[in-house]
Design a protein around this nucleic acid. Sequence first.
DNA 1: TTGAAAGCGCTACCAA
DNA 2: TTGGTAGCGCTTTCAA
Lengths: 331, 331
Amino acid sequence: MSDVARLAGVSKMTVSRVMAGRSASEATRERVQRAIDELGYVADAAAGALSSGRSSFVAVLVPSLSSSNFSDTVSGLTAVLEPQGLELLIGDTDYFLDREERLVRQMLRHQPRCIALTGAQHTEATRTLLQRSGVPVVEMWDMPAEPIDMAVGFSNVSAAREIVRYLADKGHRRIGFLGGAGELDRRGLDRLKGYQMEMKALGLERHRVVQLGDSPVTMSHGGPAMAALLERWPDTQAVMCVSDMSAFGAIMECQRRGLSVPRDIAVAGFGNFEIAACCYPAITTVSVDAYGIGQRTGEAILAALAAADGASPQHPAKTRIHYTVVPRESA
Amino acid sequence: MSDVARLAGVSKMTVSRVMAGRSASEATRERVQRAIDELGYVADAAAGALSSGRSSFVAVLVPSLSSSNFSDTVSGLTAVLEPQGLELLIGDTDYFLDREERLVRQMLRHQPRCIALTGAQHTEATRTLLQRSGVPVVEMWDMPAEPIDMAVGFSNVSAAREIVRYLADKGHRRIGFLGGAGELDRRGLDRLKGYQMEMKALGLERHRVVQLGDSPVTMSHGGPAMAALLERWPDTQAVMCVSDMSAFGAIMECQRRGLSVPRDIAVAGFGNFEIAACCYPAITTVSVDAYGIGQRTGEAILAALAAADGASPQHPAKTRIHYTVVPRESA
DNA sequence: TTGAAAGCGCTACCAA
DNA sequence: TTGGTAGCGCTTTCAA
């Protein structure tokens, strides 16, 4: 920066101001800009952050980057935050809470202005870490009773109940559930819970549950899970799947077996991924606006930053995201 | 850090050493650690980077995070770099070279130790920026004749030729190509080029090309593209698609029309995404080890860092990634 | 093994 | 509108 200042014949301070886009005469601004271009000067963000006491980072933790709903959420966040000069520090927890803890600790070192987490379950240490840091937190993709600071999401339990009701309304009685095994995917477990609650409320049996595979969203397990279900309860009329991915795998398995979907068995998914619309038969699913979750989260973050700067209007702690059942061909 | 030092009854320097895991007596180490835990101290990465002159960032730019092959590459990178204490600064170019340029400039501000880019095409400004920065660069997913520094990838032209040859070996003569429109996806265009070269080499017509949709990897365009192809050239025997995503869309369209794949028409994809194996009929494709590209890139990065630290053994500039045709049901 | 001093490159603050 | 000074929180370097 000294080099730029010398070349432009001004002080370092003036260079700093020009780069920040603050008050400077046209002539000065131009001279400085020319010097910057000539030298190919790129300011050091670490020095800036250290000096000003504020970074331009916003940390985002998602369970998986390869799941299109989470990458859509990241896109929504980017769309809102990038124009404000904020940068995303993206981390992938792999669905592990202790990995989340490690990443939170690591990202906190960079003094992010805000942290967006996926889900409402965190280790005690993570909560303590966040608390002590004072960094505002947004929890996404769920609707906890008591958010750490803010939450943008919806109740996976309620959404699952809705799709079960849809299947029941279609006249199905023997309805199964296909999901992932293991405690990793809390939102998947919530959907299972929704299935069980709604089946009970409807007075239907709720034991036709197959849980397979450790990774929560893979389509590869849909097929084997469907096979297991048909083996055990051949008279099943409809199946709700934890996600469109597993629904897809399940439907492909039906086709392999010469079963017609939905004539022989109805299949519903969750998430309204691209595949649900493209697949044949197209998959009946619950549509969740993943990109919108990112946008709303971005807005919550901006509000939190404005509040930290002394603006008064507080952002609501909970932002509820709408979901709708999308009837298609498969159920 | 002063607080920690005071509480532990040592100097700041000793705290710094303990955190870096350098020489310190057991007793001191323990006392310092206790103080850190008690205060919930989290070191400031910006200050550390500024002081030491080296960050722990590695920048990675991919065209899209929602495409599973690129997120797999990111996973491979993470697996190799995270254990070394390096952090990924992940950016999404959306397939735009000028966005890549903006992101490179932005990331350079954080003094990354290395930058991994996707593809071999970059704006002049990007190249200048990288050159001046002196940061080592790895180009992924392609095999340029002259990498900026290092490249980890393969020739998309050759890979495409191989799958065309496979289709021709199956006895097909009237072979079409389904891909994305627009200049955005260079690797997609290379595959088209490979199709055209191989068809020419085989003495076959190479005009059955349908290009649809601006985003390169979406499955939604596969259906309409297949429809357009069948409309224009109804006697087409086989189709090569720019990716498994479009192949999937194309196959679903065939099923909608009551066409049997591969009996009525053969379809091949590219990439060996999860969907290619799960889909019915399973998709014949070119398998590329996306995760492996990430790992190899990570190793190239570590080698570059070691070299910068004065280690002598140079990493090869080009690392070729193998691909293989995977015969399945669809062709 | 430990400590003291200097300084990394920038911005906040106040003065001109 | 511009410049000088101080200092952000750490690590490097050298001395004890």
